[in-house]
């Protein structure tokens, strides 16, 4: 433990129904600078709650959240959020603003000059591989994938060091999802970001993240590299979760090795 982690959740607990059930229970997590962490688990496992606590969209009942060593509870929420990029699930782009205006929001809130903002919007559109002319379009005129690219551009507009993503590619078709995931991972490297991503897609987590945190019923049940988790885990729940992408990968490589010949889906009885 040389330096303090960039983000730290310490024994946080959250209940939305007066302690009858818990969205998070004594969960602790640390994220170091430069990491790409995927939070996975079934719906209701608490992964989104944990993510939203980092920028105070949700406040813990107990426990503490720290950002750059400071307790976030003591920070002004809007100021904190302007320093952290956030990509929303599904929608999130404001329908009454153009793509350019959406991307420009956080720089504008931070009081950047008009010239700086315009230059930044153009730069970001290039970065997320959208034509610059799209700045004048309204979100409804874009495809789902283009909208989410614009969402990523908006999140990184004010050059945050940290990016939070809530099932960012969940509503997209598999091809678009893969392309976007890969190009985001490249951005993450290039910009030296620290990323925490919530996803229910284990395969996506395995392919993109450096570290996978598995959650279940408000608790963290596993926290390791994708490789380590794929090669086996003590918990049945985690094993089952991780078995799926492994099986899929094995099946695909079998198909590739068979060189296109038909192979039986189930081993013959005998």
């Amino acid at each position: 433990m040389a330096s303090a982690p960039l983000i730290e959740l310490i024994d946080v607990t959250k209940s939305f129904d007066g302690e009858r059930s818990h969205a998070l229970r004594d969960a602790s997590l640390r994220v170091d600078t430069g990491g790409f962490i995927a939070l996975v688990g079934t719906s209701g496992s608490g992964k989104t709650t944990a993510l939203k606590m980092i920028n105070r969209l949700i406040e813990p009942d107990r426990g503490e959240v720290r950002f750059e060593g400071e307790a976030v509870a003591g920070l002004d929420a809007p100021t904190l959020r302007r320093r952290i990029g956030y990509v929303f699930q599904g929608v999130g782009l404001f329908p009454h603003m153009t793509v350019g205006e959406n991307i420009a929001i956080t720089p504008q809130l931070l009081g950047w000059t008009k010239g700086d903002i315009a230059a930044r919007v153009a730069e970001l559109l290039d970065l997320v591989e959208l034509p610059r002319s799209y700045a004048a379009r309204f979100p409804h005129a874009l495809s789902g994938g283009q909208r989410q690219r614009a969402g990523v551009a908006r999140a990184i507009a004010a050059r945050p060091r940290v990016m939070l993503m809530d099932e960012p590619f969940g509503a997209l078709d598999p091809v678009t999802r893969d392309t976007l995931g890969t190009s985001y991972r490249a951005l993450h490297e290039r910009l030296g970001m620290t990323t925490v991503m919530v996803t229910h897609d284990v395969q996506e987590a395995v392919l993109l993240a450096d570290r996978i945190v598995v959650m279940s019923a408000g608790r963290i049940v596993a926290d390791d590299t994708p490789g380590a988790l794929l090669s086996g885990h003590a918990g049945a729940e985690v094993s089952a979760l991780m078995a799926m992408p492994r099986r899929q990968a094995e099946r695909i490589s079998e198909l590739l090795q068979a060189g296109g010949r038909e192979i039986p889906r189930h081993p013959p009885h005998g």
Binding site: G90, G92, F94, P95, L109
Partner: peptide, 26 residues
Amino acid sequence: DAAYLEAADGVGMTSRQKLLRVELPL
């Protein structure tokens, strides 16, 4: 839509900015 309100919080708007830039226009 609550999703837009959360988005407004998420990009760092104060409640006044949220009202003027998001709620009233929508």
